[in-house]
Structures are given as structure tokens and as C-alpha cells.
């Protein structure tokens, strides 16, 4: 399988993502420049974290209209796999590839620390095989408060589209474990086709043994279940 990591002006997790896929997971990976119109035959496209276009207007709002997004959206609409991490999640949400939107954290603060994730959906390749109730993963965002209207939230729950919820270290999903005020502790969602994933936490920042926490590797390894 071939991974592509899109580089927008202001992306800053592209190198971490490439490193993890190449070195920790041994995958073929290329960078895709946002002005290009070619996915270079990639099977799996990742939109990395960062501050694309300076987070001007709204996070992800301008990147969503970058040239390569036409191809990314077409790839997703054909059933191809796309994953947005942090700013990448904000971009796929702005593009309408996953439901909902990311608002300013309820604390009004930028938060950079480890949190715990409880995998939810049993029907996606990303989370279906995760058997622990708590994975320690870092977050680093100012706009991570997941929001969707009541009908959308109901359909997300009814269709098993919630990927992760914030929890405590024992896997309990509590108000105290919700770092940013997200609705129902939601940290990641997928689309109806379950081929587009968006999550605020950074598994790529917790996948190398040298970092002292490799929980993220368990999450990213799930993607290898995709056969190209």
C-alpha cells in the first residue's frame, strides 16, 4: 500500500507522519504538494496537522479549497481512504467529507498534553481491531471542540461512526476527561462510507519507542489492514 501525506502551507506534522509511516510501520510514503493535482497513485491519503493558511478565517476553511483537495475529495467519493489528523480533521470537516465541525476549545486555551482515547466504532478498519479501553495519545489544538447538530449526532451514533471518545486512563468516558468541550467526548468521527477518518489527537506523535509512548502505533497499524 502507498501512503500520501498532503503538505499545505502551514502544515507542521507532515514530517512526523511520513517518518512514522516509513520508519515505524515500514510503508511506502510520498509527500503530496497542495498545489498539485496528482495523488501519485496513493491508496491512502493523510492530511496532517499544522496551521494550514495560518488558521485564517476558520481552521481548515481555506485549505479545503487548495487545488489537490479536488483529487482528495474525488478519491474519497470513489471509496478511497483518507485520514485527517488534527488540522487535517478540521480540513476534512470543512470539506464536508465527515460530518460536523471543530470549534474553539471551551476553555479558550490551546491545549498540548496527553489524553486517553476509548475506541468506539466496531465497524471501521481504524478502530474495529483496537481491544484496549484506553490509549494514551497527545493532543495539541486550540480548536478541537467537536460539534454537530442533534440529527447529525444521532445518525453518527446510530451508524457506528464515532471513532474515539476522550476517556480517563481506565477507559471511563467522563466529563472530567473531556479536554475541549467536545459533544459527547467525541475525539474522532468517520463518514457514512467509513473510508474517511478524522481525529484531533496525534497518533503519529506517539509511535516511536524513542518518544517514550508508542500507543499511537497500535492505532496507525490498523490502517495496514487495508489491502491495496
Amino acid at each position: 500500500m502507498k501512503f500520501g501525506v498532503v503538505v499545505f502551507p502551514g502544515s507542521n506534522c507532515d514530517d512526523d507522519t511520513v517518518y512514522t509511516l516509513r520508519v515505524n510501520l515500514g510503508q511506502e510514503v510520498v509527500k503530496l504538494w497542495h498545489k498539485d493535482h496528482d495523488l501519485q497513485g496513493c491508496d491512502f491519503v493523510i492530511l496532517p496537522g499544522g496551521f494550514s493558511y495560518g488558521d485564517y478565517l476558520r481552521t481548515g476553511a481555506i485549505a479545503r479549497f487548495s487545488p489537490i483537495m479536488n483529487e482528495v475529495i474525488a478519491h474519497a467519493n470513489r471509496g478511497g481512504y483518507v485520514m485527517g489528523i488534527c488540522n487535517g480533521f478540521q480540513i476534512v470537516a470543512e470539506a464536508g467529507l465527515v460530518p460536523g465541525v471543530l470549534l474553539r476549545n471551551s476553555s479558550q486555551r490551546y491545549i498540548c498534553r496527553n489524553i486517553y482515547l476509548n475506541p468506539q466504532s466496531k465497524s471501521t478498519i481504524l478502530t474495529g481491531g483496537l481491544d484496549r479501553s484506553a490509549y494514551k495519545i497527545p493532543i495539541a489544538h486550540g480548536d478541537g471542540r467537536y460539534f454537530a447538530d442533534e440529527d447529525t449526532l444521532k445518525s453518527l451514533n446510530d451508524n457506528d461512526q464515532v471513532l474515539f471518545r476522550y476517556c480517563d486512563e481506565n477507559g471511563l468516558i467522563t466529563e472530567a476527561a473531556n479536554p475541549n468541550g467536545s459533544l459527547e467526548n467525541i475525539a474522532g468521527v468517520t463518514n457514512a462510507g467509513k473510508n474517511v477518518f478524522g481525529m484531533m489527537p496525534h497518533p503519529e506523535r506517539a509511535s516511536d519507542p524513542a518518544l517514550g509512548n508508542a500507543d499511537g502505533r497500535f492505532i496507525l497499524e490498523q490502517l495496514l489492514a487495508v489491502t491495496a
Partner: peptide
């Protein structure tokens, strides 16, 4: 399409 996100 761009200046406002109608979800929020």
C-alpha cells in the same frame, strides 16, 4: 461556501 460555515 467559504466565509461562513453554516454548521456553526
Amino acid at each position: 461556501k467559504l466565509l461562513a460555515n453554516m454548521i456553526m
